[in-house]
Design a binder for these strands. Structure first.
Lengths: 231, 231
DNA sequence: CTGAATTCATGTCAATTATCATGATTGAAG
DNA sequence: CTTCAATCATGATAATTGACATGAATTCAG
C-alpha cells in the first residue's frame, strides 16, 4: 500500500478544521482510510435510540432532528442540528447505546468513522479530545439553553420562537420551506398539533406570516419577535 | 520545598477515582498543591451566571442547584446535583463565562482548582480528558433526559416526579427534609408556586404524603409512582 | 423579642391549552 | 389515476393551569 496513493478527501472537508485541527496528517489518513460516507433522505432514521453505538458520525450536509419516544409511542423532539453543531451523539463517550434517535429532516450527508478508531486517537491525542469535548459541550449548552427559553413561553411565543429559529439560525432568510410538519413543531415545543396549526393560522390572519403549505414567509418580523419574547 | 512534606489529602478524596483515575501521582500533587476547599452554606451562591470562569470546581459534599435568571428576574432551575454527578460547570471548556448559576441548597463543601492548571493537564493527558468528557457527558445526558420526562407530564405528575426524585435519588428514603421551597419546586417543573402548594395539599388530603413544613413523608409510594407516570 | 418580609396555604375566576369531532387537502402506493 | 393514509384546518367544549386576593405561619434582621 503506497501512502502517496491514498485517496483521502478529508483533507478538503469543510469540517476538518473543527474536528481535526489537532490531528496529524498521519492520524488523519488513518482515520479517513476507514471512513464511510452515507446519504440519508428526508425522513430516514440515521441512528435509533437503544441501538448500540459503534460508529462516530458527523453531519457534512443537511439537517437532522434528535428525538426520543415515550412509552406511549409519542415522540419528543430534543433539538435540530445542522453541520458544525452536530458532533455525533452527545453520549458517544458516556453510553454504550444511543439515548436518542437522529433522523434526517432534509437530505443529509453523514460521515461515519469507526468509533474505536476515533476513541483510540482520543486516548492518545489530548488536544483532539479537548476539541471534541468543547464541541460536545457547546452542543449540549445550546440544547439546554434553548429548552429553557421554550419552557418559559406560552403557545404563541413558542410557535414564534420556532419560526424565528428556522429563519435566523437555519436558513438565514425570512422565507423558507419548513422542513418539518406541524406535528413535529408540536413535538418540539411540547404543545398539541391542533394548537400549533391554529396559532400559525392566527399569525396568518394577523398578517405576521404568509403560509403556502410548508412554505413560510415572515411578513412582520418585529411583531413575531415581540410575540416570541413576551407572548 | 521537600516533596515529602507536601500535605495533599486529595489522595484520600472519595472523588479521586472519578476525576483522577488516569492521573499520575506527580500530576495529582501538582494539582492538589494549589487546590482550595471552600464551604458554602444553604442559600449561598457558588458561581454566578455571567461571571468569568477561572476555576475548576467539584462538589465534595452537599447539594446544589443549577439555575438561570430570565430577563424579568424570575429563576428557572435546570437541575440539582450531588457529589459524583456535578463536575464543575458543563461549560468550563466551551465558554469563558458561566451560563448558569450554581447555589448551595444544603451546606456544601466544594473543591476548587485553578482552571488553567486543570486545562494544562487535560492538554497533556488524554485519558484524564476522556474521563472528564465522560463525566460531563453523563451529567448533561441526565439533565436532558430529566427535562424530557418532566415536559411530558402534567402538574400532578411533575410534583410527584420531584418528590420521587428526592426520595429515590437524593435521600434514598421515603421521608426527608425538602431542601428547597415550594417556589423552587415550581421553578424546576415550570409551574406556579400556588399550584405546587395546592398539589402537595391534595396529595396530603389523599393520604399519599404527610407534610410537616418542609418535612415530607411518602405514605403511599405506589400511588405516587402511578401519578408520576400517568398523571 | 418584635416587626417586616418571605413562605405557605386556600379560594375564586380568568386565561390557556387539550380533547374530540369533522372535513379539506395533500402525498404516497398500487 | 385512484385510493388510502397522513397532514392540515377549524370549531366547540372540557380540562388544566395561571393570576389575583387574602390570610396564617414561619423566618430573619435589628
Amino acid at each position: 500500500m503506497n501512502s502517496g496513493n491514498i485517496k483521502c478527501d478529508c483533507e478538503d472537508c469543510k469540517l476538518k478544521s473543527l474536528f481535526f485541527s489537532h490531528v496529524t496528517v498521519d492520524e488523519l489518513i488513518d482515520i479517513c482510510e476507514i471512513k464511510e460516507e452515507r446519504t440519508y433522505f428526508k425522513g430516514d432514521i440515521i441512528t435509533k435510540e437503544g441501538d448500540s453505538i459503534n460508529e462516530f458520525l458527523y453531519l457534512k450536509e443537511g439537517l437532522v432532528k434528535l428525538s426520543k419516544s415515550t412509552d406511549e409511542g409519542k415522540d419528543q423532539i430534543i433539538s435540530f442540528s445542522k453541520p458544525f453543531d452536530f458532533v455525533s451523539l452527545l453520549s458517544v463517550f458516556s453510553s454504550d447505546t444511543y439515548q436518542y434517535s437522529v433522523s434526517a429532516i432534509e437530505d443529509s450527508h453523514v460521515c461515519i468513522l469507526d468509533l474505536n478508531v476515533v476513541k483510540n486517537h482520543a486516548r492518545q491525542n489530548a488536544l483532539f479530545t479537548m476539541d471534541l469535548m468543547k464541541r460536545v459541550s457547546e452542543a449540549t449548552d445550546k440544547i439546554v439553553l434553548d429548552n429553557l427559553e421554550i419552557r418559559r413561553k406560552h403557545l404563541k411565543g413558542r410557535v414564534a420562537h420556532v419560526l424565528l429559529y428556522f429563519a435566523n439560525y437555519i436558513y438565514m432568510k425570512e422565507e423558507f420551506e419548513l422542513p418539518i410538519s406541524r406535528r413535529e413543531i408540536a413535538e418540539y415545543i411540547g404543545m398539541t398539533t391542533e394548537n400549533v396549526i391554529r396559532t400559525l393560522s392566527e399569525f396568518r390572519k394577523d398578517k405576521i406570516i404568509k403560509i403556502f403549505g410548508k412554505y413560510i414567509q415572515i411578513a412582520d418580523k418585529k411583531r413575531l419577535e415581540n410575540i416570541s419574547e413576551f407572548g
